[in-house]
């Protein structure tokens, strides 16, 4: 049954994320088009500003898409479990563990995909900008003979990282983000479930966000305190991904985060089995 649940979850969650991922891909493609140099012709000021603005917006869009993705995921999970659609979901002959696990796996997978796309979008936007500056520099040197001024626009003088460095930093970021995402998703499922359990069922407005903040603070201090207490400072290494100072994750922190995630998962599962009362 878990396989069937996963299949349906991936279809349903994929339907929502298709839009977000599509917007990112189209936005990135248009950003590349906007910064292309048309043959040997000089780059105009208007072209420079349009290209710069578009790619700047692309970086902003990368973070907006994350927020939208998070909201969409939480709203959809809430609807499918606890609103009218819950009457379908909870009538399925599956255990609550399977139900929660399928939601968790599908949500984390698509959120991770969304984050990976955001990392790629930022990379694309920045390389587009570099190309734009390079083209502007070439135009200044070739057409106006402004060698010194044009040199300022080259990638070397801007001191930006190479593609290889970008990939490595991006991969590092994704592994760390994945660990945080696992904890965040289990906390989110817990908060959603608690908000549908008495006496919190009628709680609205201030209380739900307050509870989310309280859970987040609890996780932060639990991870920090337990990590400090154990004082195991072993950096994680995944095939060389973790090896430098960029986004290093402590082994103890990772273990505590996984432990907390498992704790929240079982607590949510217990609430689902014993305390849920669909309105």
């Amino acid at each position: 049954m878990l396989a069937k649940l996963l299949k349906n979850e991936f279809i349903q969650t994929g339907r929502m994320y298709l839009w977000l991922l599509g917007i990112g891909i189209v936005g990135g493609g248009l950003g590349a088009l906007a910064t292309m140099k048309p043959g040997s012709a000089e780059i105009s000021l208007a072209q420079f500003f349009v290209g710069f603005l578009w790619n700047f917006l692309l970086i902003l869009a990368a973070s907006v898409l994350q927020t939208v993705g998070l909201i969409v995921t939480l709203v959809s999970t809430n609807r499918s479990l606890f609103s009218e659609r819950g009457y379908l979901t909870l009538s399925l002959p599956v255990s609550t563990t399977e139900l929660l696990l399928s939601k968790f796996v599908a949500n984390v997978s698509f959120m991770l995909l969304n984050i990976a796309e955001a990392v790629a979008l930022v990379y694309v936007a920045i390389t587009n900008m570099i190309r734009l500056f390079k083209n502007a520099g070439d135009t200044l040197i070739n057409n106006y003979g402004m060698q010194d001024f044009g040199d300022m626009f080259t990638a070397e003088s801007l001191g930006l990282p190479s593609t290889g460095e970008w990939v490595r930093v991006g991969a590092n970021a994704l592994v760390v983000v994945f660990m945080f995402l696992v904890l965040a998703m289990t906390v989110a499922l817990f908060v959603l479930t608690v908000s549908h359990v008495r006496p919190f069922q009628s709680a609205t407005g201030f209380w739900i966000p307050a509870f989310i903040v309280a859970c987040s603070l609890f996780c932060y201090f639990a991870v920090k305190q337990i990590s400090d207490l154990l004082k195991l400072s072993v950096p994680l290494r995944f095939g060389g991904v973790f090896g430098d100072e960029v986004m290093k994750l402590n082994m103890t922190t990772a273990i505590v985060m996984v432990g907390l995630s498992i704790g929240f998962f079982f607590l949510t599962n217990w609430l689902m089995r014993r305390k849920i009362s669909l309105k």
Binding site: L90, R198, S277
Partner: peptide
């Protein structure tokens, strides 16, 4: 009916 169908557990 909800209790019998498993929509209410508490």
């Amino acid at each position: 009916m909800k209790i019998i169908a498993g929509m209410i557990n508490d």
